[in-house]
Each structure stands twice: as structure tokens, then as C-alpha cells.
């Protein structure tokens, strides 16, 4: 949020006017503009991708139906249009994944904290789909349905929790009685393997601690943080794209925002 307002202040007035107008008249209809950046939600069926997006966009949790194909949404973020693809997790639609991911700036790899299988699927089935994403694509690993396992998922954030140490090739925890099958460490280990798969240097990439989320679409826990962190992180990518389009108008203030966005999220 901070970053968004910084940018608003930095922009010249005509742009602000335009943004206001489109917001007040037809919030969902302001789709005439081309989206600036693409964000894709991947993950096995039933992990709660649609519910997460629904919670964020409509502030509601309601019954869903398994998504067919993919659903395209446009979110206005500051003066930018962020397109979000909610994809189907079913194998039936697997072949479409790489099309949805083409040129993506951010990809949310979503699993269900109560299902070990859903985390394994991310690596087995979904990671390869991201090959068509943009070179500077950022990744987030999202464990949803935290309300089922963590009491604090209802209200406050709980970072540390006793669990088995992360390993490169982890196995499911022995006791299912805890319900929680995937711990944050497992997700972070996966995140590191993703970086390796992408041949990215861990030291220069966004750290696992800040890119692994546990959320609950049901209670809303961590959902805004997830999306807004990502929006802020993809802003540099938007600006880069815009710069590529009109190299002449390099804005110093924008660069400052980029720096701010980065420091804000990586801290």
C-alpha cells in the first residue's frame, strides 16, 4: 500500500484524473486499456486458487466450482492494470498452462497445507509450465487453507513453528493427526529448488522467507499481503516494459519507486 501511494504522488495530475474517473464510473468495466503486467496462479485442483482470488477481489469466501480452462481478471493497481489468470488445476487442462504463463511477470505456485501431494504436484506438473514466463518472472509459493491447521491463521501471523527440517527431497510427515502436512520449511525448500530450476542465483533473488506465504482464503489471513506484495514487486517489470516502449521518457521518480518497492518487500 505504501508503495502505491508513493507512486500516486509521483505521477502527474492527468494520469491521476484518468484513474479516478475510471474507478468511479465503472469499476469492472475499465478494461479498455491493455493490461500492463500478468500474474498467473497455478496449482493442483482444489487447493483454493479461485477462492484466494475471490477473497482478494470481492472480499468474500463462497462456494466455488472447479475452474474450467482459465479465468482472466483485471485489477487496477495504482495507475496500472494488472491481469490475473486463475487457472484450472485439473490435469484435463494441463496443456493450456504454458499459454497462460506466456510472458508472465509473477507466478503463484499454490498448494494446500493439508495435502502433501499438492505440494509435490507443483514440482511435478506445474513448474515446467513456467518456462514460457518472462525472464524476470518472480515466484511465490503459497500454502492455502492455513485456517485448517493454524489457529493464528484466523488473526495474527505465526512465523516460527516446530517442524521437521527442510530437505531437498522431503517425505510426508509421519503423523497426519496434526492435519498440517506441509510446513513452511518444505515450501521454502521448494522455492529454492525453483530458483535452481530457473538457474537463478539465490543470493541475488528474492529470499525464500519473503516469497513463501501461508494463507487462508476462508478467513482472509495473509491474502491481501500476498497479492499486494506481488503487485508491488512486479511494478519494476511494468516500468521496464513501459521504458522499453518509450525510451525517451525515463522518469527519475519512477526509478526511485522501484528502489522503494524493492526495499519494502525484501526487508
Amino acid at each position: 500500500m505504501k508503495v502505491k501511494y508513493t507512486i500516486d504522488r509521483a505521477t502527474s495530475s492527468p494520469v491521476r484524473l484518468k484513474r479516478r474517473r475510471s474507478r468511479s464510473t465503472m469499476p469492472d468495466y475499465a478494461k479498455m486499456k491493455k493490461p500492463d503486467v500478468k500474474l498467473v496462479i497455478l496449482g493442483d485442483m482444489n487447493v483454493g486458487k479461485t477462492s484466494l482470488l475471490h477473497r482478494y477481489m470481492e472480499r468474500k469466501f463462497k462456494d466455488t466450482i472447479s475452474t474450467v480452462g482459465g479465468a482472466f481478471f483485471l485489477k487496477q493497481w495504482g495507475r496500472y492494470n494488472i491481469s490475473i489468470w486463475d487457472t484450472a488445476g485439473r490435469e484435463q487442462f494441463h496443456g493450456l498452462g504454458s499459454m497462460y504463463c506466456r510472458g508472465a511477470s509473477a507466478i503463484l505456485l499454490t498448494y494446500d497445507v493439508t495435502s502433501w501431494q499438492s505440494l509435490a504436484e507443483l514440482e511435478d506438473r506445474f513448474l515446467s509450465l513456467t518456462d514460457t514466463a518472462s525472464d524476470d518472472c518472480i515466484f511465490a509459493v503459497v500454502g492455502n487453507k492455513a485456517d485448517l491447521t493454524d489457529a493464528m491463521a484466523v488473526e495474527q501471523e505465526g512465523e516460527q513453528e516446530e517442524s521437521c527440517p527442510a530437505s531437498v527431497c522431503p517425505t510426508p510427515p509421519a503423523s497426519p493427526s496434526a492435519h498440517k502436512q506441509v510446513h513452511r520449511e518444505d515450501a521454502m525448500a521448494l522455492y529454492r529448488r525453483i530458483l535452481r530450476y530457473k538457474m537463478l542465483d539465490e543470493r541475488t533473488s528474492l529470499p525464500a522467507e519473503s516469497m513463501c506465504f501461508e494463507t487462508s482464503a476462508k478467513t482472509g489471513y495473509n491474502v491481501d499481503q500476498l497479492f499486494e506484495t506481488l503487485f508491488d514487486l512486479v511494478l519494476p517489470s511494468i516500468m521496464k516494459k513501459r521504458d522499453d516502449e518509450k525510451i525517451s521518457t525515463v522518469d527519475l521518480e519512477q526509478s526511485a519507486d522501484v528502489a522503494k518497492a524493492k526495499s519494502h518487500c525484501c526487508s
Partner: peptide, 10 residues
């Protein structure tokens, strides 16, 4: 669930 977004599906 279709209602909010634009669906693209085979």
C-alpha cells in the same frame, strides 16, 4: 464462478 472474470477454455 464464471461471473466475475472472462473465461477461456477448450
Amino acid at each position: 464462478a464464471f461471473q466475475a472474470g472472462e473465461i477461456w477454455t477448450p
